[in-house]
Nucleic acid binder design. Structure first.
Lengths: 201, 201
DNA sequence: TGCTGTAGGTTAAAGCCGTTAACCATGAAG
DNA sequence: CTTCATGGTTAACGGCTTTAACCTACAGCA
């Protein structure tokens, strides 16, 4: 009987593919084992537990998510960077709902100070921060704008992925409308601040 | 041995309290039974399954959530209504994270066309729509604004409840900043539309 | 080439779920 | 006082994660 030649990585990758297909909460060791042509206990030669598996999926997902956003923002600035980054996030969540759910859950409860998800999350935040720098907000408002952006994009993407937008109006239109709304607002902050500071001189 | 005098309602209420304490995904029949001073199978005399229990919790939660938002918006208009409604939502999610998660999950997948969660969701949407009417958006933009609002508030509240805002900047400040950002943006849309329409005359 | 040790599979089994069946006690109605 | 349905109980089943015990493929070395 030939061997399956599994590795921690191949198990994680298969798990990632599976979790997107069947949903975060439906992932089971039995299904994954079956998918890999192996009996359930074989998985424990490569991962220590289901929690470990989900965490590995989450770390890998957050890293790829960070890459996607960095790549989208790369070479763009201002409104273009916002639109591209936002669209990249939305696309990632829609294409990888299970992985995103895993990454999201893991990111708020790291396993420790050396959890590899932490640098991955920081890369995401750094990309958003770099994008926001194009709007020249003053330092006190940066954090607020960042949190608003994450909230709006996370909220929109997850609700869309969950089928939460049921009225028959184009979800694409709503998304681009939201992005341009946020863009206009961010530009106005800049305008107000710079005009009021020039008045103060 | 005296009886526990359970009812579907009392079981649902105890489940609602428990789900907020231990989290949506950690709810178990055994824990709930223990909390009620009863053996697990006794619960099945009042509810048909765990899925049924969660659904009852979700329906009740969505109804209370709808009440909270209606009451907050009641008697206010424009920016005041937005701020009050948004704060009511945030408070509800923070105080009832498990119930909100249940309600959110159930709302996107109703059990059928007569699922009682549907009117409850509609009441929430109606409240937001009534609030937005104060900004006099034209009908095409209403849906987009509504979706944006739900996204931003849902995203912010759930991330805060999950402990997702870890940088030490006041989350309260970020929330009020976001609300006033949204308020300003909504007012500007009105201003632009009415000025351009008056120009068109 | 043949031997051997270990990595990577297997089967068996324990423990915790949700759920159902069979049974029994409470306490309200006649 | 008797009855009997309601609302509890214990027992048991199947599915899940996980561990233990076992076995076999196959890489490295004589």
């Amino acid at each position: 009987m030939p061997r399956a030649r599994l590795t921690p990585l191949s198990v994680t990758e298969a798990g990632a593919a599976l979790i997107d297909e069947i949903g975060f909460e439906n992932l089971s060791m039995g299904l994954l084992a079956e998918r890999l042509g192996v009996k359930t206990p074989a998985l424990y030669k490569h991962i220590t537990s289901q929690a470990d598996l989900v965490h590995r999926i989450a770390v890998r997902a957050m890293a790829q998510f960070a890459d996607a956003i960095r790549d989208a923002i790369q070479g763009r600035a201002g409104s273009d960077a916002l639109a591209a980054g936002a669209q990249a996030m939305r696309t990632y969540v829609l294409e990888h709902p299970g992985q995103y759910a895993a990454a999201d859950a893991a990111s708020s409860r790291p396993t420790g100070p050396d959890d590899p998800i932490i640098p991955a999350v920081e890369r995401v935040v750094a990309s958003w921060a770099a994008m926001l720098r194009g709007y020249h907000l003053d330092s006190g408002q940066e954090i607020h704008a960042l949190r608003m952006l994450r909230s709006a994009l996370h909220g929109f993407s997850t609700q869309e992925a969950a089928g939460g937008f049921q009225i028959d109006a184009s979800v694409d239109d709503s998304f681009t409308w939201m992005i341009s709304f946020l863009d206009r607002g961010l530009q106005n902050i800049t305008a107000q601040t710079s005009s009021s500071s020039s008045l103060a001189r």
